[in-house]
Design a protein around this nucleic acid. Structure first.
Length: 401
DNA sequence: TCTGGGGTCCTAGGACCC
DNA sequence: TCTGGGGTCCTAGGACCC
């Protein structure tokens, strides 16, 4: 069977902005920047199409964005809010396609292989036409049912579908028929290829390679540029079946026993005092272990991250017996912090990561020895309140500073 | 462009084991 | 004893993605 363009990549347009507009209709039709209030330290996480021509883009500091777009409305990011909207989108996609995978909060891959017959109509002149028409109908259904605009790329290869979804924005559909991959990708800047970031781009541009059409011609061989060319050629080939499951971070809570969990914080003013650094560490441990318990898992590895004023960054980690107890993690994190911080330099950022996750033994099941000490009753009560009303419903004395 | 916060994946050296 | 090769785990750092 010849490979065909059956992989669709659906990307929600300016997702956070779109959700904020659903929740606050006064934002409709006005330029919007999501990421924080004017003057906050932080960066743009999403911005509306009105401000793009002014030079605003995600990742830019809010100060710069405010200078470029003085008229824009600035709204803080509400991470707890967006997941439910993404879940509604996914539920609709599953009515249209048997294979739907979540790649990120605003991005889904679908595999329509084998669906041509079911969706075929007399006016369709080919299987490709059937799929493209179906995807257009699906895209419109998402918009009508959720109020969220989306763009879709369709191709035989995931990476090509992804690049095509970029070309489909806003609110469009672009299909790249099998065999047309090189013609489609050739004119695009190298940065558009998934896997080419700022560092790789710099290397390529320094070598005079600006487009994927130039990169694809680089011969096989050793060295970073030949490696990137090989990566590109591989990316243009038809993809195999999509992975069995969603990425770990986007699975349901009770099956999320893989991947890692982390919380980190950049301080408005870098911290120099030891007691404040320790308080911050405690607060991070409290939050990240709560998330771990909520998804019913344990972690074997704890890593502390520290960034100084000059942006130099260090991590120190250690593995041990699995735990989800705040006390255990705090003890380990504190000792790692002592190894990572000289106690003199000012600390700009502190982070705690939990990794090597696995599912915690079910309730009532005898754990081997005291690896899973019963949670103190106060801790259980705090978790319960947070489960109902959200993490911020309870601020513990020292952590609320 | 003075740079947030949540992730994944890859590399590379050393320990350790058979 | 001076010494092979493969596999896996641990740790630190970095590129990349949204």
């Amino acid at each position: 069977m010849t490979p065909a363009a059956r992989i669709a990549c659906l990307d929600l347009d300016t997702f956070f902005v779109s959700v904020e507009r659903l929740l606050d209709p006064t934002l409709v039709g006005v330029p919007v920047v999501v990421g924080g209030r004017r003057g906050d330290r932080g960066v743009v996480t999403s911005c509306s199409y009105e401000v793009r021509p002014l030079g605003v883009h995600s990742g830019m500091s809010l100060l710069e964005a405010a200078r470029l777009a003085p008229e824009a409305a600035f709204v803080p990011t509400r991470h707890d809010t967006y997941g439910a909207h993404a879940a509604r989108v996914k539920a609709i996609l599953e009515q249209w396609c048997p294979v739907v995978r979540t790649a990120s909060i605003d991005e889904f891959y679908l595999d329509f292989a084998g669906c041509e017959r079911m969706y075929s109509r007399r006016e369709d002149r080919s299987d490709d036409a059937t799929i493209e028409r179906t995807v257009r109908e699906m895209r419109a259904a998402i918009q009508v049912e959720t109020g969220l605009p989306a763009s879709v790329g369709i191709a035989a290869a995931k990476a090509v579908a992804k690049m095509a979804s970029g070309r489909a924005k806003p609110a469009g559909v672009v299909m790249v028929p099998a065999g047309a991959e090189r013609a489609f990708a050739g004119p695009l800047p190298v940065r558009k290829l998934p896997g080419i970031g700022p560092v790789a781009e710099k290397v390529l541009v320094a070598a005079g390679i600006r487009t994927l059409g130039e990169l694809v011609l680089v011969a096989d061989g050793s060295g970073p540029i030949a490696g990137m060319a090989a990566h590109l050629r591989e990316s243009l080939k038809p993809s195999g079946p999509l992975p069995d499951r969603d990425r770990p971070a986007f699975r349901e809570h009770d099956e999320a026993a893989e991947g890692s969990l982390s919380n980190e914080r950049t301080f408005f003013a870098a911290l120099g005092r030891e007691d404040l650094v320790c308080d911050a560490l405690r607060s991070l441990v409290e939050r990240v272990t709560w998330r771990l318990r909520r998804r019913g898992g344990t972690a074997r590895t704890v890593t502390v991250k520290i960034r100084y004023d000059d942006f130099s960054t260090f991590t120190r980690g250690r593995s041990g017996p699995p735990t989800n107890a705040e006390r255990d993690v705090l003890a380990l994190a504190s000792s790692l912090l002592r190894g990572a911080w000289d106690g003199r330099r000012r600390v700009r950022l502190l982070g705690v990561q939990l990794a090597n996750l696995s599912a915690a033994p079910a309730d009532g099941e005898p754990a081997q020895l005291p690896l899973f000490p019963p949670r103190p009753r106060a801790g259980v009560a705090i978790d319960a309140v947070r489960e109902r009303f959200g993490y911020e419903a309870i601020r513990l004395g020292v952590a609320s500073r």
